[in-house]
Design a protein around this nucleic acid. Structure first.
Lengths: 152, 152
DNA sequence: CTCATTATAATTGCGCACAATTAGATTGTG
DNA sequence: CACAATCTAATTGTGCGCAATTATAATGAG
């Protein structure tokens, strides 16, 4: 017989928004790779640095909330950034449970080199700042709905 | 002094399309997790099964092209699917370099249970099929532009 | 036919991601 | 105060994701 199963549109890979998000994320990573190699950072490390360049000397928890990552991911990542001399990890005096993450002078200085990165991404994306912003807003709204659905 | 550095809008996390894609991907994963646990599949394994449900008995290379993944990722993943009894890996007779991946009866049967997954995702996304399709098309177009930029 | 070139998977090593657990600090309640 | 409940990180184990290398097979030029 070898009867072919009836196609189920929702099960088809190319119909899935989720796979579009997944594969676009990988494509972004590949574009970022050569740009971040110059900074000797991986993409998740770059994200952590973005957080710290906005607000320095913050607990791991805050970085985690900002990036939607937990200590299982962040602890080893931050240890690598510390080994690279970009940050300093110190335990908070007021609350000894907290590990405070602060930029070193070298970590602050790296921000200057990082300014070149977004330009490269924008060029590879081949869309206007306005288009990117619109898409970003749609995705953030979707992300928030997905995260809200988890709390049920 | 402790002079605060001037904000650079393009370096701000919440302005970045890329982070929106990255974090939305993680949010999707968290929503998929409980649905896929019932099938005993991880999300990348589910993607491989989607490919095989569309076309059975294909070489690893084809699955890789479809999912944008290489053998370093797929070989161990497929070995786990084989260990779970869902697929069979056999070397091609015509071209002995190729490893052909075919569904077992159990792998084919799993498709029925998988039909429930997209409904759950649609519900958690809280948007219409039309909105999802529009967003998917924008992302795929972006992905293709990013991938094209790599070939330069 | 021979030998370099190319193609397909597998392997190795490193860095995420995340669930589950553990350790230690803090808070809240009686 | 005592002590349970909560909070913050760290740790452990599994599974991607990818670069680099290796092994084997197929192809193509001379």
């Amino acid at each position: 017989m070898a009867k072919k199963p009836a196609p189920v549109p929702l099960l088809q890979l190319d119909n899935q928004l989720c796979f579009a998000v997944y594969s676009t994320g990988h494509a972004f990573n590949r574009v970022y790779k050569p740009l971040l190699d110059r900074l000797k950072l991986t993409y998740p490390q770059y994200l952590a640095m973005l957080v710290l360049w906005e607000q320095d000397n913050v607990p791991v928890k805050d970085i985690g909330e900002r990036l939607f990552l937990d200590s299982g991911t962040l602890t080893p990542l931050l240890k690598r950034l510390e080994a690279a001399g970009l940050i300093k990890r110190t335990r908070s005096i007021e609350d000894e449970r907290q590990m405070l993450i602060a930029l070193t002078a070298q970590g602050q200085a790296l921000r200057e080199k990082a300014k070149a990165v977004p330009q490269g991404i924008l060029a590879a994306s081949a869309c206007t700042v306005g288009e990117m912003a619109a898409m970003k807003n749609e995705l953030v709204a979707l992300r928030d709905r997905l995260n809200a659905a988890l709390g049920d």
